[in-house]
């Protein structure tokens, strides 16, 4: 079993036959704002398999972040259920490490390496401080931050902070890494670089990741499977296969981008026509 897990999946049948790591079944999410109860998602279903780069894509207001937070265990579905490796998700836990959009997700009172070792020690994932330190430095090296390991977060740039958060998540070797628009607050040049680095990391270890974004281009670049959500409330519009990397950068990628764009904004366009016509 261990050998299976560490080797990359090559056969499609193999993936289809295996159990999903994450099973989202008919999840309806509601939240209250003031005196209103707002429906964030309505009966969303999806399955994430081992080594998937699964992207949740949709415009703002489609409940993709709410869905991710409920997978993280922060938000109970009012209907449906979420299962991680067959166990029902009821509360937050380190088997689903999260990477947030905000730069303040690092603990400012801990150095970079301490930020990575802290969850390892606290969750009991690693027994000794030495082992935690070794593992932290190993993953910091993967994100090219060895030089900054003993700095405090306030000395790092936004992109570096996000890399620490990714290293922290990966060092825990969770069942699934949950990323909530991790590159959205970065400048365009850094964002492209970070996307490339994330893909390199994936090539290296084939971790399972659920990635939320509102950028169609980012979804096509990152994802091997893309779940399209329509807004108000979020409902599954489509679940598409991603492209291989060479195709994603070429004309096929552009075609898929147009395709997705049309799907997401079809309703809006027809609505506008109705209004103006």
């Amino acid at each position: 079993m261990n050998v299976m897990m560490s080797s990359p999946k090559t056969l499609v049948d193999d993936v289809a036959a295996s159990e999903p790591i994450l099973d989202i079944r008919d999840v309806t999410l509601q939240y209250t704002a003031g005196h209103l109860s707002i429906l964030a998602t309505y009966k969303v279903s999806a399955q994430v398999f081992e080594a998937d780069r699964f992207v949740l894509l949709g415009p703002s207001g489609c409940g993709k972040s709410s869905l991710l937070k409920s997978i993280g265990g922060f938000h109970k579905p009012s209907e449906g259920e979420i299962r991680l490796r067959g166990r029902k998700v009821t509360e937050p836990g380190p088997d689903r490490m999260m990477v947030f959009q905000e730069f303040d997700q690092l603990l400012p009172w801990k150095t970079v390496v301490q930020n990575v070792t802290f969850p390892l020690m606290e969750s009991g994932k690693v027994r000794t401080r030495k082992e935690a330190e070794e593992r932290a430095r190993h993953y910091l090296e993967k994100v090219n931050l060895t030089k900054f390991a003993d700095n405090y977060p306030h000395m790092l740039s936004g992109g570096m902070k996000q890399r620490v958060a990714i290293a922290r998540g990966m060092a825990m070797e969770p069942d699934i890494l949950l990323m909530d628009e991790p590159f959205a607050a970065l400048d365009a040049l850094t964002r492209v670089k970070m996307q490339d680095e994330l893909l390199e990391l994936w090539d290296d270890t084939h971790f399972t990741v659920l990635f939320v974004t509102h950028s169609i281009a980012e979804a096509i670049k990152i994802g091997n499977r893309i779940l399209l959500l329509s807004p108000h409330p979020g409902q599954v519009k489509a679940e598409l296969n991603g492209l291989c990397r060479a195709d994603a950068a070429g004309p096929k990628g552009k075609a898929l981008e147009r395709d997705i764009h049309d799907m997401l904004f079809a309703d809006k366009a027809s609505e506008e026509i109705r209004h103006h016509g």
């Binding site: 836990g93 380190p94 999260m98 947030f100 603990l107």
Partner: peptide
């Protein structure tokens, strides 16, 4: 205390 930091703490299972 920022919402993000709280969520990070709970994510660790604290």
């Amino acid at each position: 205390t920022s919402r993000t930091l709280r969520m990070v703490g709970r994510n660790y299972g604290l």
